[in-house]
Design a protein around this nucleic acid. Structure first.
Lengths: 240, 240
DNA sequence: CGAGACATTGAATTGCCTCAAGATTAGTGG
DNA sequence: CCACTAATCTTGAGGCAATTCAATGTCTCG
């Protein structure tokens, strides 16, 4: 089992101007459906490490990330764990058309979620084909990302993995950064331990590779978390 | 680029009793829709190593596996490649709702496919919500499998990876083998090289681990390919 | 200020890869 | 039918990258 701080989410009452309105799946809904959804939504706040969904538990609700980062992880009996996905706002979380979860969802940073009760989501999915399409698009993107990451896990060296991770986060923060010439700066949403679990490396190796990248002026880091990438092209060259 | 033997598929005319009728996605269609589909289907035969779909090429058709095994793989500039998925009958192949491929699809064993032209598939998807649901279910399963495999690639030792691979194939051949007491025998659909690319290991390491499993009587192998697993439980214990 | 979590750095170990040489199999043509 | 070649697989020896173990450094918060 992953470390579970068991911080129960602060439950707020339904928020009419919840960010879910602007989120991924909600552009697919009519005014009326959106009204229905929002009136059945609950906001949850989670501290880093708090468990949002459990493995092998019944699915009672889905969620949409309002802010922060969620890590999806799988755990082996002996405690080894692998982060198999990261969820940023406005991603949707949950296995639709299934009855139970197959992984843990944990807050990586402070997270705000909009919880959607399962029956509500199922009713909307039944009604709205655009919603189903939107969801399908998101799942296909998840599949692409998972396969991309399989290449990193299976083929790349530690140095390349760490570079690929920094690159991945940069693209999430600044989606147009791919061809961007200017510097990109962001706050790392994961601890070294989380990064290690994501990359299939040890904490020490992650740390060493970050140091090496800093030594080569590919990145600079202040306060352990604030990352600046002066040149995305140089970083990309290190991704393998 | 992966080795491309460029064996062009033998094109047969549309086959009225093509196995596509019994395949995964086709149970979701009406008689009329099935008729429409089958009349626009072409059979293709591929030899091991032959490319079915290319990376970064336009999507002109989808396919359904009739027999044999397809490997989906991603390739880095320097030639390293990672198998990111295996497709067995009656799996569906292709990125729906997208315009271009993001990976290579290659025959691992001799393969028979049913090709479905893109416009045909899109029209059916537009018409049939059950088909869309069926496809969604298959994509969700692919996502589950990809994440399961990420754990293997990121966390497991070479010995555990090889055991996990043999276990995976066993479950495909005999889906009920999970709790099965009897022996399971099958023909390996992949070469040592393919297995290595799937597991993120070298060919030599795969070979050594197979030898080791044989030495411990977890498996027996005849003619390099014919694998027998006398006890699935023992094998599972080695999967980590 | 002190405690605890998180991160960095070093030294020693090990698991897997690389390189290299044989063994086995399948396919080919004399 | 059998030698010959090419491809695939196995096995061994040595090297290296990443892990493990251990110690130190840094930040946060009561």
């Amino acid at each position: 089992m992953p470390m579970s701080f068991d911080i129960s989410p602060s439950q707020a009452s339904s928020c009419s101007h919840c960010v879910v309105r602007h989120s991924g799946i909600c552009g697919a809904l009519s005014e009326q459906q959106l009204e229905y959804l929002v009136s059945h939504t609950r906001t949850g706040l989670y501290s880093p490490g708090a468990q949002v969904f459990g493995d092998e538990t019944a699915i009672t609700s889905y969620a949409s990330v309002v802010s922060g980062v969620i890590k999806l992880l799988k755990v082996l009996e002996d405690g080894r764990q692998q982060v198999v996905g990261l969820k940023f706002a406005p991603d949707f979380i949950g296995r639709v058309f299934a009855t139970d979860n197959r992984l843990y969802a944990e807050a990586a940073s402070p997270v705000q979620l909009c919880h959607i009760p399962r029956p509500v989501m199922e009713r909307l999915l039944q009604q709205s084909r655009p919603l189903e399409r939107r969801l399908m698009a998101e799942i296909l993107r998840e599949l692409d990302e998972a396969r991309e990451w399989m290449v990193t896990l299976g083929q790349k060296s530690a140095a390349e993995r760490v570079a690929s991770f920094l690159h991945l986060i940069a693209l999430h923060v600044r989606p147009d950064a791919a061809g961007c010439l200017g510097a990109v700066t962001y706050e790392l949403p994961l601890t070294r331990g989380d990064i290690a679990d994501f990359l299939g490396l040890s904490i020490e190796t992650v740390s060493r590779q970050l140091t090496e990248l800093r030594r080569c002026d590919i990145i600079s880091i202040v306060n352990k978390r604030q990352v600046t990438i002066p040149d995305m092209v140089s970083l990309r060259r290190r991704c393998g």
